[in-house]
């Protein structure tokens, strides 16, 4: 099966390992993720102002590219891209007035009607858990804290799972032979873009979240967002400066666990 794939800027840079592992893992379960021929930065955080259509152009333009490439479904692995594209697509389906303005502004593009469906790889995985189990060569064995963050779950309209108590990632981890720990902070914000302006907020969030996972017995944290990954992993150095006793935890993308359990060798 082939599906359209929207990487987003960060899967080409900091989160290259996310892209590489995801493409390999999906290939193993019979899904080819085909990168859009052309795509643009989605604009990350969805604009919330009623009148700020400018910040939604990029998302709509990407959906037009997906349609042009013949994809009914567009897979967006980065949680922020997923959220932005999905919310823009909901707008395209429900807000006629906004879309008529956007379509008129983008006079060099065909009109967009909201017909591409934006999905997250975890949603694809949910339907493939049997195949995934069957593909496992080296069961994981460790204990993981599944961290969803915000943007796969909120606002409710775009949630990939039950928004207060999601379980897709846990089910994946178990299918891969790992065990999961109770993790109350699994959907608490990592501080997001505060990392660019107000690092303390991210340091505090990191400390809270990782400590909570450790206390619950986790050996590692699993995530699907390159910004969560950065804030939870790279910022541990900074946390240690403030809290010398802080022990930290490794942080992985869910797809890294998949390739590990499937026994796929990654280069580099």
């Amino acid at each position: 099966m082939e599906m359209g794939y929207y990487p987003g800027c960060t899967l080409k840079t900091n989160a290259k390992v996310f892209e590489d592992s995801l493409l390999k893992a999906f290939e193993k379960i019979g899904i080819k993720l085909k990168e859009l021929n052309k795509w643009y930065c989605c604009g990350t955080v969805y604009s919330l102002a009623t009148d700020n259509l400018m910040y939604r152009l990029a998302a709509i333009r990407n959906l037009i590219r997906a349609k042009e490439d013949g994809h009914e479904k567009l897979v967006a692995p980065c949680s922020i891209c997923y959220n932005t594209l999905k919310q823009a697509n909901l707008m395209a389906k429900s807000d006629e007035e906004a879309m008529s303005k956007i379509n008129a502004f983008m006079d060099e593009e065909p009109d967009y009607d909201g017909s591409v469906s934006v999905i997250h790889p975890l949603e694809v995985i949910e339907a493939k858990l049997q195949e995934i189990k069957a593909a496992v060569k080296k069961p994981l064995g460790k204990k993981y804290a599944a961290y969803y963050g915000c943007l796969l779950l909120r606002p409710k309209e775009i949630a990939i799972d039950e928004h207060e108590n999601p379980s897709i990632m846990e089910r994946l981890i178990e299918a891969l032979g790992g065990s999961v720990v109770n993790f109350p902070l699994k959907n608490e914000c990592c501080g997001s873009y505060n990392v660019a302006s107000n690092k303390e907020a991210v340091i505090d969030a990191n400390y809270r979240i990782i400590t909570n996972a450790r206390r619950n017995g986790a050996d590692a944290i699993v995530t699907s967002c390159p910004l969560c990954h950065f804030n939870l992993k790279e910022m541990q150095k900074e946390v240690k400066k403030v809290h010398p006793e802080f022990a930290g935890l490794p942080v992985y993308y869910f797809s890294e666990l998949m390739v590990e359990a499937f026994g796929i060798e990654m280069e580099g």
């Binding site: 800027c9 052309k38 795509w39 643009y40 930065c41 604009g43 152009l57 990029a58 333009r61 983008m106």
Partner: peptide, 25 residues
Amino acid sequence: VSCNTCTKACPQELDVMDYIQASLR
């Protein structure tokens, strides 16, 4: 914001938006 205005303005008919997007990533 991927408005494409730069591409429309370019007298050399370059894909200006695309090169900015490539630069960003």
